[in-house]
Design a protein around this nucleic acid. Sequence first.
DNA 1: TAGATTGTTAATCGATTAACAATC
DNA 2: TAGATTGTTAATCGATTAACAATC
Lengths: 213, 213
Amino acid sequence: MKTLRVPEATVTRLSVYSRFLERLDRNGITTVSSGEIAEGVGVSPAQVRKDLAYFGEFGTRGVGYNVKDLMRYTKKILGLDQNWPLILVGAGNLGYALCTYKGFNSRGFQIVGVFDNDLTKIGKKIAELEVLPMEKMPEVIEKHGARIGIVAVPPRAAQEVVDYMVKNGLEAILNFAPVALNLPEGIEIRNVDLSVKLEILTFNLGFKSAQHL
Amino acid sequence: MKTLRVPEATVTRLSVYSRFLERLDRNGITTVSSGEIAEGVGVSPAQVRKDLAYFGEFGTRGVGYNVKDLMRYTKKILGLDQNWPLILVGAGNLGYALCTYKGFNSRGFQIVGVFDNDLTKIGKKIAELEVLPMEKMPEVIEKHGARIGIVAVPPRAAQEVVDYMVKNGLEAILNFAPVALNLPEGIEIRNVDLSVKLEILTFNLGFKSAQHL
DNA sequence: TAGATTGTTAATCGATTAACAATC
DNA sequence: TAGATTGTTAATCGATTAACAATC
């Protein structure tokens, strides 16, 4: 079996290309070159071609890529040719924002259950969904066939939440709590830390100032 | 002048180490080794030492690092020895969540102005702040000496927003809109795309399934 | 001194880029 | 055919890791 290891950065860029192609398609553009994609998302043309080359040959030499086709291919590669039901824990402000975030729905993600252990939140509605107590999670996972969970609780509660998610069969976790979580082998996790990139900015601003000295 | 280029990944990890050290400090732990930091945040011990080595010698051979000191050093390196006023554009659900996000305040970030061009939102209060029309931005930037702006508007509005931010003197942008933005030379930008990491998860889940075939 | 752990160098690994043959 | 652009290889670049002397 040919085990090609795809760099995570390639998958990240594929996601970005994919959304850029959707925009071109909405604008009625039918053909695009690696150079135009590169220009549109801020990478090099060679990078675009190399990233695509991990998965096949999608273009026509001398011509470029068919926008609609390449859009479909990239989405399929990312697993976005299907809908993904999501389980969300944490009905605070961040949870609320995620529930109503358009960027999820437009890519086939749908939050199908919102959970919290705060009695003052349980029973309230977020968008169309009633906030449920944690004990209801198994049944919601079962009903929708959910495989992915989102953690939007404070750091100190996060480990307990993912343990519960894993116990109930979720296979992948998107974690918004700024803390490293321990998970069993085979469970995928990615962290979105809202302030890390802000700290990269302050680092760079400080560095820039320092160079004037 | 010794121009050492610090990898962005190093700065990212520094931010993570820094928060881990804060937690150790809160728990009353006074000394820590590179191995313990590595364990706590999920990287290699050599990586921890190498990352720190870009900036100086902070440890004691045979002993490790003083938690409080290293915490202060890492925060200082990241520019977090000062407070950072932030300008936020977009008073939707995401904007609301960012305004109330504890993870910002605990690192010295403070949103000092929230702006929107939606007349139904202007005048409303988010936390302590009144949502202001865009025209008020120059005066708020001036008043607080803000240098960083956060974009939490829909993709199609984002370019116009950053243009306006840059015109009014902001030097760094944290962009939550899933679109590549064009900025003049010298302006720092970082994107936080809420769904990219979700798509890495779906990619990996698909890949895992494929390997069973 | 013996044990532990840093700081740093050199080796390894992997990702990006440049270049060009293939081909529309 | 001439011009354009892909797919792919080889070269370059940069980041991570292993290893160990320094030293507490």
